[in-house]
Amino acid sequence: MTEKKPGWKEYPLAAVISKPGSCTYHNTGDWKTMRPVRDDSKCDKCGFCWIICPDAALFMGEDGYYEVDLYHCKGCGICAHECKKSAIRMIPEEH
């Protein structure tokens, strides 16, 4: 059975999107072929990986390490390449 699609009356005026940041539900994580893995022994929690991630796919965890949000991480590899401590490496994504 196919899902019934909304009729014209059900759309907001002028297709205005009233839910800010609604793309957060979009799984861009399944684009990746490689994913970042952190070596805690090397990481000094500097956070540079966080500020240079184009996809806001890192966030500070409770212990101060920056965790990867794999649902959004597209696997570009910038964090691994930029890490001054070489604490992040990219490994093949298993699908």
Partner: peptide, 24 residues
């Protein structure tokens, strides 16, 4: 205080409905 996005991309999936709405 109520951030909305005006003027998004309308795929073929919705464009006709939005135009119908406008015409009505």
């Amino acid at each position: 205080d109520k951030p909305i996005s005006i003027g998004p991309v309308g795929f073929p999936e919705i464009y006709t409905e939005i135009k119908k709405q406008q015409n009505v």
